[in-house]
Write a protein that binds this DNA or RNA. Structure first.
Lengths: 188, 188
DNA sequence: GCCACTTTGTACTGTTCGGTACAGAGCGAC
DNA sequence: GTCGCTCTGTACCGAACAGTACAAAGTGGC
């Protein structure tokens, strides 16, 4: 955590963690400085726009990560079932079985809503869209696929809330298992 | 919103709205003063413990409201199907078809986690528990009932996130409709 | 070794924060 | 009226805030 970042890119993971833990308002420059190991001088050198630019950079990186590792494969998949299963696996890893907050979801609930409406909207629209595409390819009708995709992404977000509220990662695991069965990914 | 509150109780709704809109850290005393129509003097007269006491009072009121209007009926119901349906209806109203944030869910994600872990845990545990009770009474086994209850509460929380992210209340409505069908509440 | 450029620590700015102090306004009881 | 009590506006406090200025420390090319 305090393993002194050397540049803008290296600082992003620690930065993301601070925003996840404390929200946008709660993430003070002191906390950010501590977490990244960078002094104010360096922080403002790398992010002249201050906190807002830091948060934007974090959101952009998360967005890019999901695009690369999750969404892209779903859109043009030739093996929809395998790729959807891989998506759930990646989600399980990424969100630490529900212990780790989804920063974009947190921003959606209002923490920095006005500032990042666009980015938040784009992230979830692409997630739902890509998943719906994969579900169409796996044999669902367009409407059913969209409904299933909405249900899946919603269930993941809700499971994060419940897991953290009740402090029980079992909730997240069970939610993923239900989704696997509902998406027809059960080994047969 | 700015309709000057006259006492502690009257101030709670406006207070809750500020915390919902801006989160715990983001709700400054200036915003609170504006929203309630109360000056600092009055605020500290009614809530000597400051912001923390205000947030605690709001959470307690929300908790009491759900206990009275949602949880109680579910626990000892003799008409589980009707009472579960009524619960979904109340939820739809309360959360403004997904436009209104669940403050307890927001706190669960971290906005004021440390300060309200107990309250957040109790709220969701009682919600899931009461719903599971009703589902047992409507003929489900204990395990299936708990799983369904977890799924339902999670789906509601997730639908709030998605609805706000994509700015489309249809998402919340469709989620509730799916839940009705899954909980066996469809008119037959 | 010297130069140009990037990176950093530190001291500082003005502002806003949560919270306090307190005088006085309002207002029923008698 | 006037007493006692609840309530409220205002001025104020120290601390923490985001952001700036800038000199010094590094660093790679030559």
């Amino acid at each position: 955590m305090a393993a002194t970042a050397r540049g803008r890119e290296e600082a992003l993971p620690a930065l993301a963690e601070v925003f996840r833990e404390h929200g946008y308002e709660g993430a003070s420059l002191f906390l950010i400085s501590q977490a990244t190991g960078l002094g104010k001088g360096s922080l403002y050198h790398f992010f002249p726009g201050g906190k807002a630019e830091m948060a934007a950079a974090v959101v952009a990186e998360i967005d890019a990560w999901f695009e690369r590792h999750v969404f892209a494969a779903l859109r043009d998949t030739r093996r929809p079932r395998e790729d959807i299963a891989a998506m759930l696996e990646a989600v399980d890893q990424y969100f630490g079985t529900g212990r780790r907050v989804c920063l974009v979801g947190l921003f959606a609930l209002g923490d920095a809503r006005d500032a990042f409406t666009r980015e938040v909207h784009a992230y979830f629209a692409r997630w739902v869209g890509a998943l719906a595409d994969a579900l169409v390819r796996s044999g669902n009708g367009r409407a059913a696929a969209t409904a299933l995709a909405e249900e899946t992404v919603g269930a993941i977000q809700g499971a994060i809330v419940l897991t953290r509220a009740l402090d029980d990662p079992g909730i997240f695991g069970r939610a993923l298992q239900r989704l696997r069965s509902r998406l027809g990914l059960e080994r047969r």
